[in-house]
Design a protein around this nucleic acid. Sequence first.
DNA 1: GAGCTGGGG
Length: 768
Amino acid sequence: MSRKRKAESGEVLKIGNKTISLEGYLTKKPKTASTPSTSTSDNNTPAPSTENDATTPTDPKEFKPSRPLTGDPSLFATRRALPLYLYQDRIRSILSKKDVLVLVGETGSGKSTQVPQFLYQERWCQRRRVKVKTKTREETVNVGGVIAITQPRRVAATTLAGRVAKECGTPLDTSGRGTGKDQEKGLVGYSVRFDHRVPPGTKIKYVTEGMLLQELLRDPHLRQYSAIIVDEIHERSVDVDLLSGFLKQIVTGDKAGRGGIPLKVVVMSATAQVERIKKFFSSDDSLKKGTSGEEVEYLEIEGRQFPVEVIHEPKPVPDIQEALLKTVFKIHTQEPLSDKHGKKDILCFLTGQEEIEAAQRLIEEFAETLDPKVPKVKVFPLFGQLSMEAQHEAFQPIKHPFTRKIVLATNIAETSVTVPGVRYVVDCGKAKVKQYRPRLGMESLLAKPISKSSAIQRTGRAGREGPGKCFRLYTADTFATLPKTDLPEILRTDVLGAVLTMKARGIDDVLSFPLMDRPEIDAVENALVHLHVLGALGDDGRITDTGRKMVLFPVTAPYARVLLAAADPRYDCLLEAIDIISCITAGDDIFMQVRSEKDKEAVDVYRKELQRREGDLITYLNTMQRFVSTPSADRGTFCKQRRINVRNMRQALNIRKQLRSLSVKNKMLAEFPMPDAEVTYQPVSPETAERILKAFLKGFAMKTAVLAPDASYVTAHGKHVVAIHPSSSLHGVKREAIMFLEHVYTQKNYAKKVSAIQAGWIAEALAA
DNA sequence: GAGCTGGGG
């Protein structure tokens, strides 16, 4: 089983039957000649832009803004040092005249924290009472007063709010509690799923993109707001693309719903590749004479990055692991361990867990062969499926003074987390990307070349704390052929959810909704048909009552359909469906992967108890029911024994609570269920399990397969062969028919989250 | 018989 590996001292490394030559890359003495001749520097590191506007002097000490800083004086010095400080008058002046500003500011410019503080006292930002006409009558409403700043991630929204509250010197209790009327007044708040802190008097509100889309459902004109600041738009999530469309409609529309008061929009990006964004908001086609407010202003602000030298490979590398090993040890043996800026650690970008674990083994084995005079290395893997503690380890500085840290990461380290101490980046040039195939109704997850923008982002990770170097394991020519930017998510994903989002917010003609990038018509048509099958759209293509109920739940359309079916007396299994959906939508699988064979045996003993012959869904239900009936004190052990991801389980409990209370609110549950402590665990009967699976079929009848005579599973829709994924409890098991919730192409065409069903149930689900 | 980039309501 265990592959034989042998590290040899000298210049050759053997792994199994593979021999890697390290000739010319290793000099056992740390001090040698400087950088090899292949070294080239390209112009990707952001050069400070020359700003020759008269209103922005170059010395922050001489600059006197038209309005003094307010808030906590102890933080003034830090804020004055931010590049953005010099631009505050300019930004205020632009927005007093124009409605849309596109602002490019590299990481560290301070845009996310400072821009809202520059604006909230502006005259146009005051709340106003205005008359608006509704269908039936005229009414007086409040418009404006608050600035919203959207963020792609919850953690960003909450931490930014905390920091800005501190700068403003107003309270924001992020510790919990502090709700209701005992809340103190404050300038700054935030609102993310499961967590809302909006003190009375809030003028600056950090929200996730999804949250603002939710608000749009209740308030299509965003009347509460004077301005929306869309941050990190370059990440191009589906949510930000939809949001941009709605904002464009408000900005360029007749504003009657806002009593004629304009909504200001500031779009902020970390990369300068904003042509498409600029053009999108400039509303060329809808430009009307006499309304100058529609014009878009553009401003670019330098970041605070140290220079990073970029080194490409002279010729294409045949083996990425080999190239990585050579490069890592070239850095390790030729570059200093630290300098006046601090430690000089290495961050490597790889595609996935498998590649990372292989690289870790290689590096650790080779490190053992190094001369004792050479500093030690310590390797840390970093990918999403890793436990919180293991991820945390990669962020800790190494205490030992004679050791260099090497972090092997997926693109989790590109945007989601920042590893401190990094001064060398090694970039393999690839990343795994998920792409939806509308024709096949499945997605693929494959390693593909990254974009230039992504490569530059990775490079930048070497220059956060001091001057750095980035080694690209591909040639300069290859870099030149990379696409400029990544494909936005809306072109890579099932647009089912996006289409329902539009329909629910009054967009009847989804094909003419303004989007920066339009999905193919095929993809949209597929989504429309699918929504019709789910009953969310009627024959006329308009949203149905079922569809309106579906959007009230924070889950994708098929899951929402399952919840509605489960609430139907015919199936009567809403609480069970909620338990299952909570487990499934809580992030990655609550069952973590077990790395060693020995651990796997021990864990499987416990996991087997949870597994049910009906398959993964009922296993999840069993797991949730067992978990909540376990006393709190024993839950940690329960998770540990079964290698259940505690973080995801906690998230599942939050989702469960939210779905339960939404069910009560939407009259699908008569009353709140009994507290878990009062429920004794009892495994569901086979009869109940059957009802549950039939309820799930109302959302997933399209994702079924029947066992063929040759013992393969063939999908009912499309007639493709699928294999049951090894993560499923039904892997290797043959049943009459299966339902699966996910369908992914990796090494093979895989079905995941699989349940055993009867073939007859499929037609039954599609009929009624 | 064989495995998984990252987010969000």
